[in-house]
Design a binder for these strands. Structure first.
Lengths: 214, 214
DNA sequence: CGTTAATTTGACCAAATGGTCAGGAATTAG
DNA sequence: CTAATTCCTGACCATTTGGTCAAATTAACG
């Protein structure tokens, strides 16, 4: 056979690269989340990935390049959430799905959310173009959908823009400020049950708040 | 006369110190907000304050000391907002006042909010004791007030804890993410009128959302 | 096997960083 | 006025930083 017999071989050049890049990206995400771009150091990232710094620079020549890759991954997750807010006639269904998705992301990928927050706080030196194109277009289309719901009398006449901000802030808060939440929860992270309550609460208050509940 | 005649003199040792410290603290706040503690440099702060770095270190011997002072100031502003949520029988009145106050702070002191956000993201190395004492006590007392409103049938049975998180996140979002909001607003900051709408929207959705509106 | 290509890493470097210090300038006290 | 005190700052230093490189190791393939 020309194909290698042991596809599940522990080591293979392709696999090595794939795994190392993944490990480094994960370490980088958590360090960038905690210290921002300037505050993060490549040695810290290398240490957290359990490799020598020189090896990190073999895979990612510069700190910039590594950061860009991390941010790209995060933006893809964001896109995934964005998709869940589809053009649906029922505001309850659409918003419930969207808020739920965003809450799930905050729980499963808190580091990514923090990197994003840091980027915005720094005035988006890397993702500014995303904000002005993809995010802006997406936002405008959803504003239109929400406005349609209002025109159809399905929800109260709230300002769609600020409703979106409220959804973003509430859901992302559980990622960005999870340390504060944990501290107020007696030093232990929210349990799955507690997180479910938080999720239900957010959905309930927002849907009731815009008059979607009949 | 033993007292100096020219009290309004442009230069006096006491005045000089007071003004320089204020200038440095303001510059430090904006640099720490943008880059976090690690990412900020004393030269950047000195430059933004228009003084030589050595002069900065004359007033604040270490970066740590300067940061601590900045955080202390921010915490005092937070306390000021906290006070506006008093033990009031009317949830509409109390929550409206509190949300309004928090929105005003976000507008007038966005840098402080960002420094706070950075601190929490870094797991509160400096303010952890505040979180565990002052913030925790305050939160518990407000949870009790909200619970009382629920028991009295004045608002829907929401979970008080998560309602607070929603208020914090929504209001602080306008400070921490103001760059994103500005970008989505066509590159210009929210006008006073727009900010008023954002404020009204937040109050309206939250109060309606918990069933406080009759 | 042997050759080639990919991976690993200790040692190294120039630039940036937090912080120091000596000495000069300005203000105040007597 | 003089002396004491506070303020100011250019020059300096040890450490940390992002990044390089040559040499060694490992896998790929005929």
């Amino acid at each position: 056979m020309s194909k290698p017999e042991k596809v599940t071989k522990t080591t293979s050049k392709a696999k090595i690269r794939q795994e190392n890049e993944k490990t480094i990206l994960k370490a980088a995400e958590s360090v960038f989340a905690e210290y921002g771009f300037r505050g993060a150091t490549t040695s810290m990232i290398a240490e957290r990935a359990n490799i020598p710094k020189a090896n990190l620079h073999y895979y990612f020549p510069t700190k910039q390049a590594l950061y860009r890759q991390v941010v790209d991954n995060i933006f893809n997750i964001w896109l995934q959430a964005a998709d869940s807010f589809d053009d649906c006639d029922d505001p309850i269904e659409a918003l419930t799905r969207y808020i739920e998705k965003k809450m799930d992301i905050s729980r499963e990928n808190p580091m990514g959310s923090k990197v994003w927050a840091n980027e915005i706080i720094r005035r988006a030196p890397v993702i500014q173009d995303y904000l002005e194109t993809t995010l802006k277009d997406w936002t405008e289309s959803r504003v239109a959908i929400i406005q349609r719901w209002i025109d159809q009398g399905k929800i109260n006449p709230v300002d769609p823009q600020y409703l979106l901000y409220m959804i973003w802030s509430t859901t992302q808060h559980y990622a960005d400020f999870n340390h504060q939440i944990e501290t107020l929860n007696g030093g232990t992270p929210l349990s799955d049950a507690q997180y479910q309550i938080a999720k239900d609460n957010a959905i309930e208050i927002i849907l009731t708040g815009i008059g979607a509940r009949k």
